[in-house]
Nucleic acid binder design. Structure first.
Lengths: 143, 143
DNA sequence: TCAACGAATTAGAACAATTCTAAACTGTGA
DNA sequence: TCACAGTTTAGAATTGTTCTAATTCGTTGA
C-alpha cells in the first residue's frame, strides 16, 4: 500500500540516484526531466512534447536544455533514439531489445517486445562493415 | 551490341514513356530527373544529391522542383521514400520488396533483397490499426 | 559555511532541410 | 497557333535542431 503512493520526494530521490549512476550531475532541470520520463512506464517523447509536458508541471526548462538532456540521457544509455519520421526525433525510455509499431498520422509509437519478433536471413554486410543493430518499424494506419 | 550503346534520345524516350504511364506530364525537368534516376540500376538519392548531380549534366533544375518531383514520383509509385536518418530523406528507385543496410557515418544505403530477409512474429497491431508495411534497417558501421 | 571553479542552463541567433508563395513559363488539345 | 491548366522557379518562410556567449548553479576543499 505504501508503495502505491509515492511522494514527489521519492520520485526525485530515484531520479537523482539514476542520474548519479549515469555520471550526470543532478541539476534541477535534469532531475525534473528524469522524473517526468522515468516515473511512469515506457514512454516515447519528442523534444517538443517533453518540453511542453515539463512546462505544464510549472518547472521552467528551456528547449535547448531539453535537447541537451535528451542527448546526454541517450549517450548515458538511459534513452534510446528512434528514427521513424523524417521530420522529428523520438526518444524511448525503453532501452531494451524491442521494436515498434508506428502510426504515422498521429506520430504514435507502440512497443513490440523483442522476444516476440525475429528478423531472419540478414545477409552478412559487405566487407569492412559490421552490424550495429537491426531496427524494425511496422508502419500501421487507422482503418 | 546495339543494346549496349543507348543514345541519349533513347533514354529520354524511355523516361517520357515512364512519365506518361505514371500520368505525369513529361516536362523538360521531369524527363531529365527521370533519366538520371532510372537509367542506371537501383539508386538511392537525397534531394540535394540529385540536385547536384543534375546540375552537373548542365541542365538547370531548381531545388524546389527536385523536391516536388521526388514527391510526385513517390506518389506515382516510381520511387520509395526511405527513412533512416533524422536529418534527411532518401529516395530509392527500387520500389520492390526489399530492405536496407545503412552506414550512418557516410549516409550510404545498400539494398537487401526481400527474398533473403524475413521478419517473423510481428504481433497483430492494436485494434483499429492495420499494417501498412514492415521496414527493416540494418545499421552498420565501418570496422 | 563559503568561496571558487568548472559544469550546466539559457535566450536568442544560426542553421539545414524542406515547404510555401505568387509570378513567369510551358505542354497540350483544339 | 492560342489559350489555359499544369509546372517551374526564386526567394521567403517554416520547422526542427544546434550553436554561442553570457549567466547561473552544484560541488569540493578549506
Amino acid at each position: 500500500m505504501a508503495k502505491a503512493l509515492r511522494e514527489p520526494k521519492d520520485t526525485s530521490a530515484q531520479a537523482i540516484a539514476r542520474l548519479r549512476e549515469a555520471g550526470l550531475r543532478p541539476t534541477r532541470q535534469r532531475v525534473e526531466l528524469a522524473g517526468v520520463l522515468f516515473q511512469s512506464g515506457d514512454r516515447h517523447v519528442t523534444a517538443e512534447s517533453l518540453h511542453d509536458e515539463v512546462a505544464q508541471t510549472g518547472v521552467k526548462v528551456s528547449l535547448a536544455t531539453v535537447y541537451n538532456t535528451l542527448h546526454q540521457f541517450t549517450e548515458a544509455g538511459l534513452l534510446r533514439q528512434v528514427i521513424v519520421d523524417a521530420s522529428r526525433s523520438y526518444f524511448d525510455t525503453n532501452t531494451g531489445d524491442h521494436q515498434h509499431f508506428f502510426v504515422e498520422k498521429e506520430g504514435l509509437l507502440i512497443d513490440i517486445p523483442g522476444e516476440s519478433i525475429a528478423v531472419a536471413g540478414v545477409p552478412a554486410p559487405p566487407a569492412g562493415l559490421s552490424v550495429d543493430r537491426v531496427d524494425v518499424v511496422v508502419r500501421v494506419r487507422r482503418n
